[in-house]
């Protein structure tokens, strides 16, 4: 057998070293399925504070997202981005924090050409071994989408962004069905008869000026089927600072709504993400999406709860086994004694 030269060993070692350094030091970008660990914690989750230090204590996974090019409208020619995601649950609620860099803060959609920044989490509603079609589910295999919107966040933070916010100098002589005593003033949309605000009258959640949460709870069975749910169960908050969005989402692990994904501690589910850059007119299918990944919901209180329960079970188990063994021994002894007596 031919012996390898010293140079070959050096090159091999160098390659190995390079590989080790690369894999250890670069951000962990996983081209394939990755496991997002929802850490079990005790007490309340900082669900309305996406900037809390708490999130940095959690395992963080970086998910690459690329322009959606499965169906039109597509997002082409946009570099791959990265979402950093953390998750935690306290046995009752589950929370996520998504972080990504975005140089511009787009939170107003009043102008025809203005689009919002947004981010979404998607879960298959059915707990099956294979995820449904990544394009927002498929017939019979619905997905639950939690969609955070920059403009809804702004509505909640600073009040409904009305026409006059986008156009401060707007001047209108007269609106026939506005509740106002002042001529030549622009009353807020909420002073108008809802009958003449078509989207609002049609119960379109986008048109309702009263926003409760920046996160819309949706269901879909494939492209174009995205539908606002009757029960809105997701809350959250987004904060933009120094070119980064940090958005938190939270929902009870289980809800009474059949259109929602139901999560249980100890469970493994599929999860996918999408992000929109309003500055680049990204809206609808023009988004960056991740693959399906795995979400592992850790059982509650692993440090204490499970240990306590485990020792309890152990005590019970050992005790039970001891009692059982004694009983069997006694029974056997009793039987043996009887038999010997009978022989005598």
């Amino acid at each position: 057998m031919k012996k390898y030269s010293t140079e070959m060993y050096v090159i091999g070692l160098a390659l190995l070293l390079a590989f080790a350094i690369t894999t250890l030091n670069t951000p962990t970008v996983f081209p394939q399925e990755t496991v997002l660990f929802s850490k079990a914690v005790r007490g309340p989750l900082p669900i309305s504070d996406p900037e809390s230090e708490f999130w940095t204590t959690l395992p963080s996974i970086q998910f690459p997202v690329a322009g959606q090019n499965i169906t039109t409208p597509m997002l082409l020619g946009v570099p791959i981005k990265q979402l950093t995601v953390n998750s935690a649950n306290n046995g009752t609620w589950i929370a996520f924090r998504i972080e990504w860099s975005d140089a511009t803060r787009n939170v107003n959609t009043s102008r025809t050409e203005a689009f919002r920044d947004a981010v979404a989490i998607m879960f298959p509603i059915l707990n099956e071994t294979k995820p449904p079609f990544l394009g927002m589910g498929e017939a019979g295999k619905p997905v639950n989408v939690w969609h955070w919107k920059g403009d809804w966040q702004q509505d909640i933070d600073t009040g409904f962004q009305d026409l006059e916010h986008a156009y401060p100098n707007v001047q209108v002589d007269y609106y026939p069905f506005a509740n106002t005593t002042q001529p030549n003033t622009i009353p807020p949309l909420t002073n108008f008869s809802v009958n003449f605000v078509a989207g609002w009258a049609a119960n379109n959640p986008l048109s309702n000026p009263f926003k409760v949460t920046p996160v819309e709870d949706l269901i879909a069975e494939g492209f174009g089927s995205l539908t606002h749910q009757t029960h809105q169960d997701v809350i959250g908050k987004g904060v933009w600072k120094d070119g980064r969005w940090r958005v938190s989402f939270a929902r009870p692990l289980s809800t009474s709504d059949g259109s929602d994904v139901q999560l249980r501690p100890g469970q493994t589910r599929f999860v996918a993400f999408a992000v929109w850059n309003g500055e680049n007119s990204e809206v609808d299918g023009r988004k960056s999406i991740s693959n399906w990944h795995t979400l592992q919901v850790e059982s509650v209180f692993p440090e204490e709860g499970i240990l306590v329960s485990r020792s309890l079970w152990q005590v019970a188990g050992v005790g039970g086994a001891f009692v059982l063994s004694v009983a069997i021994l006694l029974a056997v002894a009793h039987d043996w004694r009887r038999k010997t007596r009978a022989k005598q």
């Binding site: 959609t109 009043s110 102008r111 025809t112 026409l163 986008a166 989207g199 986008l206 809206v283 609808d284």
Partner: peptide
């Protein structure tokens, strides 16, 4: 949902975006 794809696509520019209802 206010995507404005119709506003973009119609060559006659007849669909119009409502900034108050955002659709």
């Amino acid at each position: 949902r206010g995507y404005r794809k119709c506003v973009e696509a119609c060559p006659y520019k007849r669909p119009m975006y409502n900034p108050a209802t955002r659709i």
